[in-house]
């Protein structure tokens, strides 16, 4: 099984894939062999879904938001402050959650990719230069880097001007001041060394970044039942591993960079202002995402 990985092997998500490989190879007594191609050598993130779905490579990992073109509802993970506690995140992302079932099925139908497991990348934070972003007022009129359609809507709702930028481009954009701030994953601040170029790390924790490990569905169906079973069990194990580790990873990332960048904790009142300012994003999500988005939101509201 050839797998295309978008991050380095040493990244926690890469480690996660490696433990999957070990389990699968061990349990199948070496009948299933897994070959990992790290660092997006084979395809860029936006093309992984297409490449795996078409069978160019049998398996890959990609950000969930890269499927937003096929299944707009996947962007629900970025809905601001909808999954604002570890318990809620767990309730949404665990393998038996109804939301996850809806999303996984929709991805399978739209792209011919079977979602094996979800990889937690951690929560989103806002980076800023010169002034911290404590309240939405401070974002007004600022240029903000985002990496997904819905995150852009959030920035618009906050009064900022969103620009879409890939993970690799943001460093230069921050360094050169092409943007005033940006939304990013908390662990990326450490791994991409963004603390070198930004002054403030604002712990908004407004949403959640998810990656998915996907397999070409025809490829999966053609495996023997025993092998399918091994793959599904391994996926379940490593998904749990990463989910349990992610809080620790976030904390250690914060610990490692706390002398390099000013970390801004938001008070409850401040976060309430953010929540208030962004509540229309949900309506927009439903309007553009159709019935599937509506279903996801009503399930989210039941939490």
């Amino acid at each position: 099984i050839r797998v295309t990985l978008q991050l380095q092997e040493s990244h926690p998500l890469g480690e996660n894939l490696k433990s999957w490989k070990e389990i699968v190879e061990r349990d199948s007594n070496g009948q299933l062999k897994v070959q990992i191609f790290p660092s997006a050598q084979l395809f860029k993130d936006n093309f992984v879904g297409q490449a795996v779905g078409a069978g160019a490579v049998p398996m890959g990992t990609a950000s969930l938001s890269s499927f937003a073109g096929d299944v707009p509802a996947v962007d629900f993970v970025f809905l601001p402050f909808m999954m604002d506690s570890p318990a809620k995140i767990e309730a949404v992302t665990n393998v038996n959650s109804p939301i996850r079932k809806i999303i996984d099925t929709a991805i399978l139908e739209a792209t011919n990719n079977k979602v094996l497991w979800w990889q937690s990348y951690g929560r989103t934070v806002y980076l800023s230069n010169n002034t911290p972003f404590r309240t939405p007022g401070e974002i007004k009129g600022k240029k903000i880097r985002t990496f997904g359609r819905l995150l852009g809507w959030t920035v618009e709702a906050l009064g900022g001007a969103p620009t879409l930028m890939s993970g690799s481009r943001q460093f230069l954009a921050y360094q050169q001041g092409a943007v005033d701030g940006g939304v990013t994953g908390i662990t990326a601040v450490k791994s991409r060394k963004l603390y070198e170029v930004m002054d403030y790390l604002n712990l908004t924790y407004d949403s959640n970044i998810e990656f998915v490990a996907i397999m070409n569905n025809d490829f999966f169906e053609n495996l023997s039942l025993a092998h399918q079973d091994i793959i599904e069990k391994a996926s379940l194990i490593v998904e749990k591993q990463l989910r349990q580790k992610i809080t620790f990873l976030e904390e250690s990332a914060l610990e490692a960079i706390k002398d390099e960048i000013v970390i801004v904790e938001l008070s409850d009142e401040e976060r309430e202002q953010w929540r208030e300012a962004t509540k229309d994003v949900v309506t927009r999500f439903i309007n553009e995402g159709g019935p599937l988005a509506q279903d996801v939101v009503s399930l989210l509201n039941k939490l």
């Binding site: 380095q8 660092s39 690799s168 460093f171 230069l172 360094q175 791994s191 991409r192 060394k193 070198e196 170029v197």
Partner: peptide, 12 residues
């Protein structure tokens, strides 16, 4: 820039 991205060496 690409090298820095791949190896996590500081780009500046």
């Amino acid at each position: 820039i690409l090298y820095g991205m791949l190896t996590e060496v500081s780009i500046p």
